[in-house]
Design a protein around this nucleic acid. Structure first.
Ligand SMILES: [Mn+2]
Ligand SMILES: [Mn+2]
Ligand SMILES: [Mn+2]
Ligand SMILES: [Mn+2]
Lengths: 222, 222
DNA sequence: AATAATAATTAGACTAGTCTAAAAATATAT
DNA sequence: ATATATTTTTAGACTAGTCTAATTATTATT
């Protein structure tokens, strides 16, 4: 029903809304996220409003309506299920799947996503640790996850996700032999730039604060 | 690189070329096949020619260039591989997969189709018995198949494919308990309308000539 | 060979989506 | 409270793809 373009806008607005405290999502934020121009976004917001997919007031940004949010979640569900398929079944690496999932997410068919979900064994998380909405659109993510950067010296945690799922970041994680489930320990936090010395198995590495802010961990009681 | 629309045009021209002895594929044939208007086809043919995907002379129809044919075969490969996936892995029925495959065939990534191919065990035929081009675009279909309508009394054959893969026809085959690999015997051919009495296992059915012309069989030596 | 029928092309308009450049509104700083 | 900077919107143009209606080529029939 909705075009690929419209679906990408909805997903984008959803993503920005989620990591923004409150208020409308700005035209520029959408434009940057979607690599397009602000004027194009304005045009699109008018159309999305017309179709009751967003609430939008000129000069004051947009928010998804319930209808728009449901549609966005449906696409995110497909995106993440396909990512699991690509990694688990076709043996792609976690840094290779994004562009393909970006296309596959637009293939229509409720039955298709539901059967894919069953085929994969109803996975709860995608290869990057992001939760997969169920067939009703419910997102059950009851893990208490936090950025590595919030840990202090001598605390340990298990990797449960990433905030940045770009290929360079994921490849860096591979290089450090860090994957979902890996345990790590903070040996030292440098006061100057908040960089950290961390232990992974027997190996010890120094990582930047930018790195630590993008790695999500579940804190271990130790 | 090529849009979904362009890809569908190429696939369509390929299909018409294949079951047409010689000459250019006509504007009207494409329009009918694609459920569009002749004027739209003319516009598109000019663009395809520009991109060296077809040879086209005004008023004299079009033919795929080598480049266009390769692209068409690539899409057909993806279409058929996805159909196998949907039937073999997601348990869809053979009459349910067409629309989904019609979308999935446009997902880009050579690596994706090749890995899907491997995951499926390099199938040689899709759920309708159509041959699947290999990664190099070679179509290896060395079976001698013929329409059921070409069989005469007391000859038997094994179902190896269909010419019509529409849902109504496929559902009718299910109803007759006919699937790929099923053996059947021609008991009688009615001279008047070329309808046939055929035996499938213990069951006996009367089928029309239109039916017989759309079912492909490999003749059994008996 | 002329006429009629059919097929294909053109002309012009429309939608979805995008862009640049200019104008208007909002936010920030003095 | 004004002026300045930033953000957003509008105006107008462009591309891909489609359509209807009118025109032109080709083919078939006499
Ligand atoms: Mn996408
Ligand atoms: Mn992901
Ligand atoms: Mn298609
Ligand atoms: Mn098929």
């Amino acid at each position: 029903m909705a075009s690929e373009t419209v679906e990408n806008y909805l997903k984008c607005i959803y993503a920005i809304e989620k990591h923004q405290a409150d208020g409308g999502v700005s035209t520029n934020a959408i434009a940057e996220h979607l690599q397009t121009k602000a004027s194009s976004v304005t045009d699109m917001l008018k159309k999305l409003k017309q179709r009751d997919l967003v609430d939008y007031k000129k000069y004051h940004g947009a928010n998804l309506t319930a209808k728009g949010r449901n549609k966005a979640i449906e696409i995110i569900r497909k995106h993440r299920l396909w990512e699991v398929f690509l990694v688990e079944k076709l043996n792609f690496k976690w840094d290779e799947v994004h562009d393909m999932a970006e296309q596959l997410e637009h293939v229509e068919g409720q039955e298709l996503s539901d059967r894919l979900d069953a085929f994969l064994g109803y996975p709860r998380f995608d290869p990057h640790g992001d939760p997969i909405p169920d067939a009703e659109g419910k997102i059950r993510d009851d893990r208490k996850k936090q950025a590595l950067s919030t840990l202090s010296q001598n605390h340990s945690g298990v990797v449960v996700g990433v905030l940045d799922s770009s290929a360079p970041f994921l490849k860096y994680l591979d290089h450090l032999e860090l994957k979902l489930g890996t345990e790590l320990l903070v040996l030292e936090v440098i006061d100057f730039d908040k960089s950290m010395k961390i232990q992974i198995g027997q190996a010890i590495h120094n990582v930047s604060n930018q790195f630590a802010k993008n790695l999500l961990i579940r804190k271990e009681i130790n």
